[in-house]
């Protein structure tokens, strides 16, 4: 297990470094946006990892409610936390790009708004986990995750239907209008690198949570044995 982790971590590190090199040096500078376009090699892979994490959290929550295995809950926490971190990066790198290109930091555009609401829902999820009495309450968290995920569908629809009157910034020569193969190359490397990075973080967080669960269990067992010893005396 440990050697597998080390190999995977090393692979992720190599991929990330190569991806960084490709994004900064390998890919050509974009004609209209200039250097700032390079943030896309960072922004989009992060969004991709976030979009992987939240459905995984939803699945893990459903499975947890069915079989109540602590390991599944640990996986749900790991994906939710990593998802929120990557979502935060997306929300921070977006405006850095938008300011020079659109001329504004933020706009209530459909995609931006839905990402923000998604972030709010999952921060609420983490709050609920953090504030439960008597240690984390996985059942409450899992139920909330199911509410959150179904709500996300409503968020996407509501924002598309009811906020459309707002002006949408025009993509001038964005990634859609014919992309240089070297750009595509840099993008795909980074996509792979960040997927590995996200998986690595989930792995770390998962094993940390498992350790915490086992320590809690051992503590509970110990105090139970103490009680029993005292009552039998």
């Amino acid at each position: 297990m440990k050697s597998k982790f080390a190999i995977f971590a090393l692979l992720t590190f190599v991929l990330l470094s190569w991806g960084l090199y490709q994004a900064l040096v390998g890919a050509p500078t974009e004609a209209t946006m200039g250097q700032v376009q390079r943030i896309f090699y960072y922004h989009v892979p992060n969004a991709w990892v976030m979009e992987l994490c939240f459905p995984l959290n939803f699945l893990a929550s459903i499975i947890y409610l069915v079989n109540r295995k602590a390991a599944i809950d640990a996986f749900a926490v790991a994906t939710a936390e990593v998802g929120v971190v990557f979502c935060t990066v997306v929300l921070l790198t977006g405006p850095i790009w938008a300011r020079p290109v659109w001329g504004i930091w933020w706009t209530w555009d459909a995609r931006l708004t839905s990402t923000l609401v998604l972030w709010l829902i999952y921060v609420g999820y983490l709050m609920l986990r953090k504030l439960s009495t008597g240690g984390p309450n996985p059942v409450l968290a899992a139920s909330f995750a199911i509410f959150g995920c179904i709500d996300a569908v409503f968020v996407f629809m509501a924002i598309r239907w009811f906020r459309t009157q707002h002006p949408k910034p025009v993509f001038a020569g964005g990634a859609d209008s014919g992309i240089d193969p070297r750009m595509m190359h840099a993008f795909l490397i980074n996509l792979l690198a960040f997927t590995c990075y996200g998986a690595l973080l989930v792995w770390i967080r998962y094993s940390l949570e498992r350790t915490r669960q086992k320590v809690d269990e051992a503590h509970a067992m110990k105090s139970l044995l103490h009680q029993e010893a005292r009552s039998s005396r």
Partner: peptide
């Protein structure tokens, strides 16, 4: 904290 984010689409 947990009700408001879930209520956003309904509120809209």
């Amino acid at each position: 904290l947990i009700l408001f984010p879930i209520s956003i689409p309904a509120l809209l």
